[in-house]
């Protein structure tokens, strides 16, 4: 569990590194603004419980950091460095994700209450939020190395949660079927990317797909 959270932190650090390296080169080439908007929506709808329950100082501060980073990323892409954002290739129709995910969260949830539905929505949406980014890579056929590192850690942290959930079920009898199924879906969506990352990026090549 700690490992999962450490990697979660790590993906945010990589994200920040990505932003800072972009600041240096004034370029956001290859990053999907739509995926980043979806992630901002994911963290906003999931962490509304900041106002209702307190788990630990760590938990609350990480939630605030996640929300802050998500909106900072969106701001940088659409406002500050709009000129270098490649919107022409970022053409995934997000309504095809948000509408079905919204519908599903009303139908399959733990409790039919506003906060619980929004939490379920965020879990489902997170599992597919990377699709605009993967679509963009498949469209342009390549990605900056820093983008691929960022995507790798974004995928890795949910994959590590799978280990955590197995552990918690085994030792604490705790499980949350919605989170587990969504986590499995999210990890599966990343598999193709993981394969490319290991076979290409780690061997020092820039990720580029055959035309």
């Amino acid at each position: 569990r700690l490992l999962g959270q450490l990697f979660e932190m790590y993906q945010f650090i990589v994200r920040l590194l990505f932003i800072f390296s972009s600041l240096c080169f004034f370029s956001l080439t290859g990053i999907s603004g739509k995926s980043q908007i979806l992630f901002a929506l994911v963290f906003t709808t999931r962490y509304l419980d900041l106002f209702t329950i307190f788990i630990s100082l760590y938990n609350s501060s990480m939630k605030i950091i996640y929300i802050g980073c998500a909106y900072a990323t969106v701001y940088l892409i659409y406002m500050k460095f709009k000129a270098t954002y490649d919107g022409n290739h970022d053409t995934f129709r997000v309504e095809f994700l948000v509408v079905p995910v919204g519908g599903l969260s009303f139908l399959v949830n733990h409790d039919f209450s506003p906060l619980e539905i929004l939490w379920t929505f965020s879990i489902y949406l997170e599992s597919v939020a990377i699709l605009p980014q993967l679509f963009m890579i498949s469209k342009t056929g390549e990605a900056e190395t820093i983008t691929t590192h960022y995507l790798f850690f974004l995928g890795l942290y949910r994959a590590l949660y799978l280990v955590n959930w197995f552990w918690r079920y085994y030792f604490e009898g705790f499980f949350d079927l919605i989170a587990i199924v969504a986590g499995v879906v999210q990890t599966i969506l990343y598999c193709d990317f993981f394969y490319l990352y290991v076979t290409k990026v780690l061997k020092g090549k820039k990720l580029s797909l055959p035309a």
Binding site: R1, Q5, E8, D49, I53, I55, N59, M62, K63, Y66, H110, D111, E116, W119, Y161, N164, F174, F175, D176, L177, A179
Partner: peptide
């Protein structure tokens, strides 16, 4: 489902 699992994960 009758019980809502605790939300202690991020």
């Amino acid at each position: 489902e009758d019980t809502v699992p605790e939300k202690d994960e991020l």
